[in-house]
Design a protein around this nucleic acid. Structure first.
Lengths: 336, 336
DNA sequence: GTGAAAGCGCTAACAC
DNA sequence: GTGTTAGCGCTTTCAC
């Protein structure tokens, strides 16, 4: 088992250099030699050992995507977008997830330090700006969906502030004046920015900001329900809730249902992300769509360009990509 | 950038062999040397190049998981189980997904052929038994959640026939006599087996099998709704529907709702997999739970043992793992 | 306890 | 158009 380039060479009666040349589509090799090498490869069932190749070439053509957790089906859409761009260009994409465990992110980054991958795309990160900047000097990294303030690192995100502004403004337009907000802790820059957008939209509509209409928990499922429970116990409960993730919206909707409210009528709920399940829920859920495919494509496109950029001027820009408000049943709109 | 073992050696005033020894925790190295090497490593910010290391060691300690698509959040739970076992044992797990595209599976397997990974776990496959058997001779591969008939390859799955039998029997026990089935094409062994289990359960209850109560589509979301639409147009529509995936159940439920039926009362729906969203749906959905964590753990445990088994007798066994029926709102049970 | 040196499989100068 | 050879960064015998 495990034929090497040398085996192929003797089988084909040529030197290893010639074999290597046909492997790499080097034009300067005769038709005859090419044919004999191909035959030998087939006969021996040879495939090149990439450890040797990559060691020599000093790059691997694989890019690692690190996700904070694995239950956001939203991340998968980004990965799809990344893959669709990268694969035809000779890059393999591999994924790892942090499962929100301490130290895991750094563990995964080892693949970068150990030269197993050429670059890393972080779909959310716990690294601070300093660390990121230092990392970015020596390695090719990029942020996607979650920026970090002060980090001069290639990042592509949605304009979170504007997106939240638009979502909230839409709720206002529907006639709501008592609009609550469910966010994650402000440490997540996306949630912080969305909260700012929410506040700005209320201000623009001359609606006073109420602390009791703001709930900050975690990005995951449970917090939404807790928030709604709290909101609905208020003397003046809100008529609309804007959640910074669809998962949060789902749990908010469920709790509202349990409380006997008809979502879309008694209470409007708006999510964020537009994951597939939004259309499967009952009612379907309104949300802010992040253009996952496009984000994935853009971030990997720029990252690859950085990787191939030997002269030091890499693109560490901050790019935003257009969001879209999707109105469905949970805000009283018709489906389809 | 990119210090090598040689740099560390000169910095520490020792030979590369000694550096390598401390890197690999070889006991036969003096405290003093160890200290100097560690200092040099820190100073230079050195991390070993795994391409060199792996080339020499002839293994990489990474295992690849290939998924048929990326929207089954169910797969992610298996990957979690795999990771939780593998990581503490020095193995990295990386994921790739086929996105149901022709040829992608083989493309990903290249990582195995190219020695980039030590083994592969297939969460569903398009390879036939012959191919799999041939592959398994030379490489370490395993199947999980989806077996293939005639393949003598390490596989761990749920007993699909029995699981479907139990699910259907439960529906019978609830008093249903008109029970429909929504499956994927029989080419998917899991779906075929589940259909067999469904049939056996009906037979055991002396309920005649009706062709018009059987719908075979795809594993994904849409088919469920189509099926329900068809079923409900029947002169004698079913009172219960068993779907071979939760996604199918979700879409069945949605369609039933659209048709004005109250799921859990007018129509019972049972899914398969127990993905997280089952608890978020309205009503919550009853299902057959596959013990993802356990499956992941078992399959990777056995695969790693195969990888480390230099003498040729590898474990190509077929293992099943216990399923569990979870009763929720969609079959009229309380959510608790 | 430590170092010199061979070699893992491959690519790329260089020579012819 | 082809072969020879050095060497990518590392581990591991084998001497000492």
């Amino acid at each position: 088992m495990g034929a090497t380039i040398k085996d192929v060479a003797v089988e084909a009666g040529v030197s290893v250099a010639t074999v290597s040349r046909v492997l790499n589509n080097n034009p300067s090799v005769s038709e005859d030699a090419k044919k004999r090498v191909s035959a030998a490869i087939d006969k021996l069932g040879y495939s090149p050992n990439y450890l040797g190749r990559n060691l020599r070439k000093k790059h691997t053509n694989v890019i690692l995507v690190i996700m904070p957790n694995s239950d956001h089906s939203f991340y998968m859409n980004i990965v799809s977008g990344i893959r669709r761009y990268a694969q035809p260009r000779g890059y393999s994409i591999i994924c790892a997830s942090t499962d929100e465990m301490e130290g895991m992110e750094l563990r995964h980054m080892d693949m970068l330090f150990n030269r197993i991958v050429d670059g890393v795309i972080l779909l959310g990160t716990n690294f601070d700006a300093d660390t990121l900047n230092k990392l970015s000097e020596e390695y090719n990294i990029a942020l996607c969906t979650e920026s970090v303030a002060g980090a001069e690192v290639l990042t592509v995100v949605v304009n979170d502030e504007k997106a939240a502004y638009d979502a909230t403004a839409e709720l206002v337009k529907e006639g709501h004046r008592r609009i609550a907000f469910v966010g994650a802790a402000d440490s997540a820059s996306s949630s912080r920015k969305r909260r700012q957008g929410y506040i700005r939209a209320l201000k623009d509509a001359s609606i006073p900001i109420k602390d009791e209409y703001m709930y900050l928990g975690r990005y995951d499922y449970v917090s939404g329900g807790t928030a709604v429970e709290k909101f609905m116990a208020l003397p003046e409960p809100p008529t609309a809730v804007f959640c910074v993730s669809d998962l949060l919206a789902f749990s908010a909707i469920k709790k509202a249902n349990d409380l006997g409210l008809t979502v879309g009528k008694d209470l409007a709920v708006m999510g964020f992300d537009n994951i597939t399940f939004c259309e499967m829920m009952q009612p379907t859920v309104s949300t802010v769509e992040q253009p996952c495919m496009e984000m994935g494509r853009e971030v990997v496109r720029k990252l690859i360009s950085n990787i191939n950029n030997t002269n030091g001027d890499k693109d560490n820009g901050y790019y935003t990509v257009a969001h879209r408000i999707v109105l469905r049943g949970s805000t009283g709109h018709n489906d389809n």
